[in-house]
Write a protein that binds this DNA or RNA. Sequence first.
DNA 1: TATTGTTATACTCTATAACTATA
DNA 2: TATAGTTATAGAGTATAACAATA
Lengths: 162, 162
Amino acid sequence: MSKKEKTAVSIDDVDLDILEDTLSFYIRSVNIAVSRDLDEKLKGLEVARGTGKVTILLLADSHPGIRPSLIAQLIMKDKSAMARLIDQMVDHGVIMRQPSRHDTRAQELYVTARGAELARQVRAIATAQSRDFFKDMPAGDKKELLRILRAAYRRIVGFGHD
Amino acid sequence: MSKKEKTAVSIDDVDLDILEDTLSFYIRSVNIAVSRDLDEKLKGLEVARGTGKVTILLLADSHPGIRPSLIAQLIMKDKSAMARLIDQMVDHGVIMRQPSRHDTRAQELYVTARGAELARQVRAIATAQSRDFFKDMPAGDKKELLRILRAAYRRIVGFGHD
DNA sequence: TATTGTTATACTCTATAACTATA
DNA sequence: TATAGTTATAGAGTATAACAATA
C-alpha cells in the first residue's frame, strides 16, 4: 500500500518525504530526544539545561587552567555564549576564573571543591545516560556510530588537523 | 605525550575526558553544527530557525489533512510547542488549519499555494544541505550513519512497531 | 590590527501548567 | 475520563553587534 498522498491517521501511515533520507533530520531529531533525556538525568545539578556546561566542567577539572576560548572552540559557542555559561557556573560556585599571567587578556579556568565533586557525579551520570539511552541499539552499530560521529565532530571543530 | 592534567593551550592538547566515548556528546555537538548550517541555508524562508517547521511543511504538503498531534509525535514536540509552530506558519501564510469533520476536536493541516511552492524549495535546500554538510564523510560511513540513526529515530518515536 | 573577553538586545525555544471543548 | 488543541509564563539558548583591554 502506498503511503503517499494519503491522509495519514496513524504514525505508520506516514512517510517522511525527503527527510526519510536526510541525515540532518535524524541528527536533529535524535538530538532532541537525547538532550531531553540527559537534562532529566542532570536535573537539580548545576550543569543541567542547555549544551556546554558539562563540557566546561569536565575540561576545567581535567585540564586546570584551560582557557575559555579553547573550550568555546570545542563546544562551538561564540565568545558571548561562552561568557554567559561561565558566569552561570561561577555564580553556582563550581568553577573559578583567574587572569592568566602570560597573557593578561586571557583567563584560566579552575574547578572549585564543589566543582570537583560535581565533575565526579557528572562523569557517572553522562556515561550512564549515553549507555542507557542507546541500550536498544546493537553493540556493533553503537561502536560504528561512535566512530563515525567522533570523526565528524573532529572534522567540524578542526581537531587533530595535520 | 600525555594529554591529561596539563594546561591545554591548543586544541590538540585537549582530550575530552569521558566525553571522548560518549555518544550523547557527539550527537549534541554535531547537532549544533548541522542545525546552524541548515538555518543559514534556510535564512529568509518561513521555516528557518528551530526544529520542526520543515517537517510540518513537508508533511502537510505530502499528507494533506494530516493532524497536528501526529506531526507532534514525529517531531517530538508537545501540544503547546506544536500549537506555536503552527501559529507561526499560519501567520506566514504557508499552511492552513481546518477543523476535522470526523472529530471536531481535531484539525487538519493543508499547505497554501505559497506553502506548496515553499515545500519545493525546502526539499531542494534540505537535501543539498545534508549532502554538502557531510561531504567529507566517506560514502560508506554516511550510509551506515543514516541506517543507524534512522533505526534509532524510529525506536524513539515508536514508528513501525507492529 | 587581531585576539580575549564582556555586555546588551531581540528573538526563539523549552517545560510546565491551567484551560476549553469534544469523544 | 481521555484526547485535541490553546494560552500563558518563567527560564534558557541564539545570533548579533558594540565595547574594552591587551598583544
